[in-house]
């Protein structure tokens, strides 16, 4: 059962990471990369490392996404 959950999570993470490269609207790409951070936090928790999971969730999913969105607002939103 654990193996199935872990495999599904890793596959979703891979799909989100590739999507972050492919999207042309940079806001969508940032959201995809925050999905990668979120799933990484869940996987860390499943591997019994709560400290790392907490750090990844607070920093990766919240602060990094906010900084990227502010950066997109100051530059351009769509990538050619």
């Amino acid at each position: 059962m654990n193996v199935i959950i872990a495999t599904v999570l890793v596959l979703v993470m891979l799909v989100a990471a590739i999507a972050a490269l492919i999207f042309k609207d940079l806001l969508n790409a940032v959201i995809a990369s925050s999905v990668v951070s979120l799933i990484a936090a869940v996987i860390f928790y499943l591997l019994q490392a709560p400290d790392v999971a907490m750090a990844e969730a607070a920093i990766g999913a919240a602060l990094v996404t906010a900084i990227f969105i502010i950066a997109i607002r100051r530059t351009k939103r769509f990538e050619e």
Partner: peptide
């Protein structure tokens, strides 16, 4: 408990966010 300086600091910063 699990956690520590970096984790707590990041949560404090998200309050400011």
């Amino acid at each position: 408990t699990p956690g520590g300086g970096f984790q707590g600091g990041a949560v404090v910063a998200s309050a400011f966010l």
